[in-house]
Design a protein around this nucleic acid. Structure first.
Lengths: 210, 210
DNA sequence: TAGATTGTTAATCGATTAACAATC
DNA sequence: TAGATTGTTAATCGATTAACAATC
């Protein structure tokens, strides 16, 4: 390909998709414009049009965009035309919350198996999933063709677990462990550390409060 | 101030801080260099030095940085020299997981009160916190001088809850609701939507797998 | 000292925005 | 048609990187 599409653009597509689906669900809208979408998302309309222009022409001058058509295009671009099976590693409090969250399935990801290495957790059920021994990760994941994993293990176990997930064929990892991870080229990691986010915002708070 | 420090720089400071603390804890290191820190974080050493240079001179030519000194400077810059009390709104699965997470307190944030509007949840305890009626939010938060909130309510309730939090004096909100929120100037929102992160990574996965 | 590393400058790279012809 | 909005270009803005003098 001539030049790759910037990651920062790719990162906005799911936000566009989410907002468009909301516009259909809440307001029953069928068309929109870059201005309307931009206002709802707190960004510039030019940025939205520029982002879309990387992938083709999705709108019509004078009338804007058909929301359903736009949703279909974004769904295709993001490879969301089929469900992705997801492995969840870590069955603690956070693992339970994630396994119980209905939003994954609704938006294209199905948590298919749960692993932990704690003998007191192995064999227990979460919803309709049985917690498997993390030792079986290397055989289960390739057998099920799982490419996506969610990491909800303690920081100290994170890198080792990542290495094993990668060896098992996982190529996208959403990590909740508060630590920077190392992965080989071609494997993607996305981080979620609530404290990092809070600390960033704390910078902007007056130091004299409370 | 002459020119504000870019938000993207502020966003990296907590990551530096986290890694430095890990270097002390795990390896007992006392000094480091921009090269070592950069390698551990998968970024360039020039970027780290440039980021630090916005705030002063923290290192010594030839020898690098004293980790403890650097940790103290970053802690000051980020307004983390005292603990921040945090309100948690939403006592579902995710709210429980967040309330049970020890990492908040350890890194400067203390969940001080929990709210929900579900009568079956109000009065129940999570750890040593009693779930309060969300209707009491407007009186409790100002009384306790709480400026930081974590939002773990359904998407449909999110904007209304944000409006009330802002009215109650909250100026930093970490939202787990899968929806874009609107806040007045001076209020900061940070988003965490795992599906958005997974969808972004799905772009890079071969569409033929599984 | 010799080697190492910082802080900073200038160059490069990349992303955002403004503006507008095209056109529905 | 007149009004609205797209897609795109060029300009602007901002962030990253390379390089190196300063200096520990």
């Amino acid at each position: 390909m001539d030049h790759a599409i910037p990651d920062i653009v790719i990162g906005r597509l799911p936000v566009y998709l989410r907002e468009l689906e909301r516009m259909v669900r809440d307001a029953g809208k069928t068309t929109t414009s870059s201005h309307e979408l931009a206002e709802r998302l707190g960004m510039s309309s030019a940025q939205i049009r520029k982002d879309f222009s990387h992938f083709g022409e999705f709108g019509k001058q004078g009338t804007g965009y058909h929301i359903h058509y736009l949703i279909d295009r974004l769904t295709e671009i993001l490879n969301l035309t089929h469900e992705w099976p997801v492995a969840l590693v870590g069955a603690g409090f956070l693992g339970h919350a994630l396994a119980s969250y209905r939003g994954f399935q609704r938006r294209g990801f199905v948590i298919t198996c749960v692993f932990d290495n704690d003998p007191t957790k192995i064999g227990k059920t979460i919803g309709d999933l049985v917690v498997q021994d993390a030792a079986t990760l290397e055989t289960t994941l390739p057998a099920r063709g799982i490419a996506v994993a969610i990491l909800a293990v303690p920081a100290d176990a994170a890198q080792e677990t990542v290495d094993r997930l990668v060896a098992a064929g996982v190529r996208a990892i959403l990590s909740y462990a508060p630590v920077s991870l190392t992965v080989p080229p071609g494997v993607h990691v996305s981080y979620s550390d609530p404290v990092v986010q809070l600390q960033q915002m704390a910078y902007y708070l007056s130091p004299t409060i409370p």
